[in-house]
Amino acid sequence: MTENKKPLISIKNLSKHFGEGETRVDALRNINLDIFPEQVIGLLGPSGSGKSTLLNVIGCILEPTRGQIELDGELVYNDRWLRSDLRGLRLEKVGFIFQAHNLMPFLSSMDNVAVVLDLAGYSASAARTRAGELLEYLEVGNRVEAFPGSLSGGEAQRVAIARALANRPRIVLADEPTAALDSERAGIVMDLLRKVAIDQQAAVIVVTHDEKIYDRFDQIFHLRDGILSQT
């Protein structure tokens, strides 16, 4: 499957260290990774192993020390950022799903999704139409006007997924998306991520400690002391 397609995420010789001298910590050591469309990848590792650092680097939040990062066919880092507008890059290419869903408490479900489209330049009506479709797709169409405070954990996570997918990103980065959910709801979320990967030809990276979803990944990578290995 992967041999005919170009990777959506391609990382070569990527390193990141914090501090210098005796205080130097190598968070990522010479990472090489290719992730293709339709793939749902699990990223495991103990606390402090570098998982969040890798996610932040792929999400263009944290600058690596050296290496190359190519996202959706665009070389964005080659020992330095090649784009100055990293937020624009994230808006265009990357969707984020958080452990604590991070919905705006003052926006309705509809507006939480529409805000991304508004930022991307959609008209208000087009943004609401697309947001409504996504919420329907994620089976929370009956909660469009509800505020996050009145949503259940599962509903809030679906709205957060809808927000991550609003601008049709081809790269989805999920940080512990099932940590706060029971087995059944965790399974539903993973099914949704799989559906997104297939329908949008997207690559999904899931950082998790949740053993109950290990069998849902196409590949599982382990990070330990900044070194990536495939299981």
Partner: peptide, 16 residues
């Protein structure tokens, strides 16, 4: 702060 961090993460420009 958390909402502002989220806005930045999802790509909101500084003017927003």
């Amino acid at each position: 702060i958390r909402e502002i961090a989220t806005l930045k993460l999802i790509g909101a420009p500084d003017r927003v």
